[in-house]
């Protein structure tokens, strides 16, 4: 479909000798191609973000005692709340990740991911600011580190990058290869074709 405008422009130029028309057509063609690429980009973003969340959640399930220590290490929650958060968080992460991987409720899942990432950023940032010696426990692990082996800048950078990705996806959730019902935006993309 994308070939016609340029072909028509070329023909037009041939017949009229008017080269001023051509750039406009060419620009339009680039726009069409870009619009067609965006849903595929969104698919890639969805799979990336979904994959990270599923893996992060799954790695926290096998060793629940480590998960408890990881949450406790932040010293932000009162002790009675620590185990439920440690056990429940991976379930939420996996649910969000699966929704993104399958392409169902993409906008809701992307927004939920963004909310979680903000919480993680606040947690890691505050641990850093308080000078705690902890591992973020993002991918399993009990939150302990060998003395002097914290990796706060990397953890903050990673979460911030994922937050940008999640927010972008929430803004434009239409993507290809989804299992879910056709999203309104996606329908627009289809009808535009």
């Amino acid at each position: 479909m994308g070939h016609r405008p340029l072909g028509a422009a070329r023909e037009l130029r041939k017949f009229t000798g008017n080269s001023r028309l051509a750039p406009g057509f060419a620009r339009q063609r680039v726009g069409v191609r870009w619009n067609a690429a965006i849903p595929w980009l969104a698919t890639a973003v969805r799979l990336l973000l979904g994959g990270v969340f599923v893996v992060a959640g799954a790695l926290k399930i096998p060793d629940p005692a480590a998960a408890v220590r990881a949450v406790r290490a932040y010293q932000l929650l009162p002790e009675p709340l620590v185990p439920p958060v440690a056990f429940g968080l991976p379930v939420i992460e996996i649910a969000i990740g699966l929704a993104l991987l399958l392409g169902v409720f993409v906008r809701t899942a992307a927004l939920a991911a963004a909310v979680l990432l903000v919480v993680f950023l606040v947690g890691v940032g505050s641990a850093w600011a308080r000078g705690l010696q902890i591992d973020c426990g993002c991918f399993g692990n009990g939150g302990q580190v060998s003395t002097g082996e914290t990796a706060y800048p990397l953890e903050v950078l990673r979460d911030a990058a994922l937050l940008v990705v999640a927010l972008t996806l929430a803004r434009r959730p239409a993507s290809r290869l989804t299992l879910g019902s056709v999203h309104p935006v996606q329908e627009e993309v289809r009808s535009a074709r």
């Binding site: 629940p64 185990p83 056990f87 379930v91 939420i92 169902v104 409720f105 809701t108």
Partner: peptide, 25 residues
């Protein structure tokens, strides 16, 4: 309906996992 069903599934999974992990620890 899909959203409600998904929410119920997640909630049930949440409760089951919290109970199992509490037992394990």
């Amino acid at each position: 309906f899909g959203g409600l069903a998904a929410a119920v599934v997640v909630l049930v999974a949440l409760i089951v996992v919290v109970l199992v992990q509490t037992h394990r620890t």
